[in-house]
Amino acid sequence: MKPVNEMKMIFESRSCNESFARSAVAAFIAVLDPNIEEISDIKTAVSEAVTNCIVHGYKDDIGKVYIHAKIFEGARVWINIRDRGCGIADVKKAMEPLYTTCETGERAGLGFSIMESFMDKMKVRSNPGKGTSVTLEKSIVSKGK
């Protein structure tokens, strides 16, 4: 199916770009007239995925984060966020609530749980040494209500 609109962005995996990335996606979907909750859900999910690229995918290195977003007929939003970082050896394990590789105790391990529950669909593909790709989908149903 052909999207009605599409955008791609590439940015460096610097944490200061987290806010920029979620705001850019929110601006892209604004044409669908989402309500506050839908915007917040999407911004939160995008922020989780982008943070994963920065914190896990590239760790202390700076690499590129790729976001590809599409809008389909029927106000369906499709967002792919990927990196070319270290990848995830065990995706199933990584998706368990509260699982985290962070040792400081300051990361909750809820990124995938939030993406999954705030969006209609989430798909994760990862190859160790090659990177991780997260695809998120959500239909905007509110029309601003």
């Binding site: 979620r22 943070t51 105790g105 300051e106 990361r107 909750a108 809820l110």
Partner: peptide, 16 residues
């Protein structure tokens, strides 16, 4: 105005 799971980490860390 916005919070992702980093805010959860912040609260949990302060809770501890």
């Amino acid at each position: 105005t916005f919070m992702d799971s980093s805010g959860i980490g912040l609260v949990m860390g302060r809770y501890k």
